[in-house]
Write a protein that binds this DNA or RNA. Sequence first.
DNA 1: GATGAATGAGTCTTCATTCAT
DNA 2: AATGAATGAAGACTCATTCAT
Lengths: 193, 193, 193, 193
Amino acid sequence: VNEPTTTKEKIERSTIVLIAERGVDGVSMRDIARLVGVSEPAVYRHFVNKNALVWEVFTTHYDIFAAQLARLQAPHANLKNKLCAMVAHCCFVFDTDYDLFTFLLLAQHVQRGATKEYQAALPELLKTLIEEAIERNEIPQQDPAVAAAMVMGCVLHCASYCLYQKPVPRKMGPLSSTLSTACWNIVQGERHE
Amino acid sequence: VNEPTTTKEKIERSTIVLIAERGVDGVSMRDIARLVGVSEPAVYRHFVNKNALVWEVFTTHYDIFAAQLARLQAPHANLKNKLCAMVAHCCFVFDTDYDLFTFLLLAQHVQRGATKEYQAALPELLKTLIEEAIERNEIPQQDPAVAAAMVMGCVLHCASYCLYQKPVPRKMGPLSSTLSTACWNIVQGERHE
Amino acid sequence: VNEPTTTKEKIERSTIVLIAERGVDGVSMRDIARLVGVSEPAVYRHFVNKNALVWEVFTTHYDIFAAQLARLQAPHANLKNKLCAMVAHCCFVFDTDYDLFTFLLLAQHVQRGATKEYQAALPELLKTLIEEAIERNEIPQQDPAVAAAMVMGCVLHCASYCLYQKPVPRKMGPLSSTLSTACWNIVQGERHE
Amino acid sequence: VNEPTTTKEKIERSTIVLIAERGVDGVSMRDIARLVGVSEPAVYRHFVNKNALVWEVFTTHYDIFAAQLARLQAPHANLKNKLCAMVAHCCFVFDTDYDLFTFLLLAQHVQRGATKEYQAALPELLKTLIEEAIERNEIPQQDPAVAAAMVMGCVLHCASYCLYQKPVPRKMGPLSSTLSTACWNIVQGERHE
DNA sequence: GATGAATGAGTCTTCATTCAT
DNA sequence: AATGAATGAAGACTCATTCAT
């Protein structure tokens, strides 16, 4: 998390921080401008409107995050290790930059139409990895989309839980292996013992 | 889902439907009044303000939902069956009343302070059940709060996934056993084979 | 010009007065609200937005004015007398209610698309009267649309001229017969003497 | 209509085109700068502010136009021919440069105070010509100011009418003689036959 | 128990204009 | 001479809420 220097970067950062704190609808352009220390119209010099601002910040960081996950899982040969790598990274980002993680979590719920299709990248990646693991006979036959949703929910909700621990958010790093195991277990399906 | 008859019931129902559709901040008192077919001040006759309205509707239905889950799991002796019963009920409510389920899902993200503490009921229940299962040696030693969060995430995110399928939401009923199994697997921890 | 009593009437009157004075773009909703003596949102209780307000006030009075002209010319048998009657009424309205006349004059230039088609009523009436006079052989063959435009311009521009006389607007009443004659002369076409 | 070469000329031309299209209040400095292809402050290098810009462009072209009319009518000995020459020139300018003509037409309605006095040049010219014709006994006794207003309205409103014909503006050239005749008829006053 | 009318605070956004570079 | 960045003022409009009836 580098300190933002240009006004545009400051606006992006302020947007992330404020939205993480109060949600998209709880933040006004005035709030953002104030936190940056500029006038309201100054924000419009850099982003055409509020939607564009939220959208641009969201997609930028979502893209980066998704790309990182894609890159980190690639070297590994089996789903178990892929999940480990991705979960570890989630924990790292969470612990390193709560605000960004929360922002990504909250921004989902806005611009329903647009966002929904866009942010398919991550579920899509997970789904593909699961499909490949099925083909490899690494895990049993199952609906990959549903499995992907369950795995994501497991990780994200755990993050939510950590986030709202009082008085300070709980670190996710220590939960990394627990989470990886849980995710791996999810895709095991029914055990016949 | 009984047809609401009194004005107050109509207001509650409209609130659920509209918030499920557009989120808490996307719905105004005017929207609610209009959908009910009364004037705005009429709404204030029944609820002191918007917060109280959302809060009351939320807690009412959340309580009912939590109580149902508590009641349904009670008869079962082990965690596996308890999870089965609760997941099945979630699927049932989802398929029976999308709006209510979505409302419950979305209302979480508002009134951060207040809601967060309140809605601990469900995680708390899950956590207790997991603790008991650990004591019973039914499942391995583990952090019950984290486990509860992961299980909830697994179910809720799966619901989200189903909700946003196009052109119509996917039914959760058929996924019930898949989900139960996944939840059960989550609490198994590391397998040493 | 009756004194407006209800808030809605007061809003309409204030709109006419202010727009007559400063043009559509020169008047804000705040200005109107202030002149009426209510808050800005109060205006929105009666008109959904500024466009609707201007449009409604414009069409209402334009319709009335056009209807009056249509009614007044009807009893007369020939174009000359019809023109006389209509011009006299224009002069009367002008002298009786400068603001209304000016408002009607200025509101034309707004909402280009919509207004242009709407306000065809008056030119259309004139054109029809001229066509009928041609058929009656009362006046020579000519393009009735062009003739109608010239007649209207003659009257309206004369009104403009009177309006901007300093220190007070000049009365049009005394010019009524001069104007009628001019209008009548316009439709005479080339004189072969 | 020469192609503008310097930035200043481009600004003037863009101003004319945009204002002809959307009216003075419908055009922002940004619009103008964008059409020219320069930054907003660049416009301020050439004109101290928006008012000055509109004003300068208006007076420049109004002066030129008025001077042309004055020059063209001079050679003719009687009012009839003077009107013919001037009307013909109006038609020519209209057909040659719609934007300019429209701009001149629309710019009238702004800067009420200032413009009104300034643009008296043309009515003044007309009034003088009519006065002289009266002295010459070419036309009957009448109020020359009123007559001038009527003649101008006749021509200008006809131009408006042509301008808004769909799908393309109607040419005024073919109407030239019709218009001249009408103008000449206007100043004939009451016929005693 | 319900309503039409009203309001203060606040929303996003645009505009004409200036300033440092 | 030209620009990117910034700003104060203002614009249209919405919202939760109140009050007289």
